[in-house]
Amino acid sequence: MSEYLQLFLTFAKIGVMTFGGGYAMLPILQREVCETKKWADDSEIMDYYAIGQCTPGIIAVNVATFIGNKRKGIPGGIIATLGMVFPSLVIITVIAAVLHNFMEIVWIGHAFAGIRVCVCVFILNAVLKLWKSAVIDIWTFIVFALVFVGSVFLNLSPVLYVVVAGIAGIALSMLGVRGERPAKGTAKGKDTATEKGETTVDAAEKKNGGAGK
């Protein structure tokens, strides 16, 4: 079987087996990619994961692109990603088409009103979890507070906040005012990026489940 087909099928399988994506995916990824296929070792997966969660986009997609690209270059990266999203496309389209006709029914309306309350809590949980690795000193707190207040009260594109915050982050780092992480205080200077990523994954593994997106 060609390796392209294997990449597509393996990542389609990972896509089907992952509920929620992100951190929930890590154990399945390790089993399929490291143990079964031997496409990467554990430390490579952790690196891809750490980078995948601090770069733009969906974490699962970023990791799939990394591994596909490592095996078969750019076409490999594209095919692994298509494999990853293929099950979602099929499953969600079918569900959406069915639900479309059911939404008018009164008790289904009540059910979704209840579910919306649950979604609020999930979002709150995601915020609490991301907070730990993101808001690490007074400056990051200020960035958080400004963006939060700004996007609650002003009607601006989120793109603007992301771009300005990125520039502010570089400026603050260059000025040397940022504090070190309080939790694992060994991270210093050049290695902070990886160190932070790993810390986040560690924390996520411990908390995996309930909130784990």
């Binding site: 601090c54 919306r116 979604v119 609020c120 979002i123 709150l124 995601a126 915020v127 991301l130 907070w131 690795s133 993101a134 808001v135 990051t140 707190f141 960035v143 958080f144 507070a145 400004l146 963006v147 939060f148 700004g150 996007s151 609650v152 989120p158 906040y161 992301v162 300005v164 915050a165 990125g166 520039i167 502010a168 982050g169 570089i170 400026a171 603050l172 780092s173 260059m174 940022r178 050049k190 902070t192 990026a193």
Partner: peptide, 22 residues
Amino acid sequence: DGAFYGLRPASVGLIAAAGISI
């Protein structure tokens, strides 16, 4: 590293604001 130092809290702020409106 510097860019993500600023990006991460901004991302949390955006998600929190989206959560508030829900």
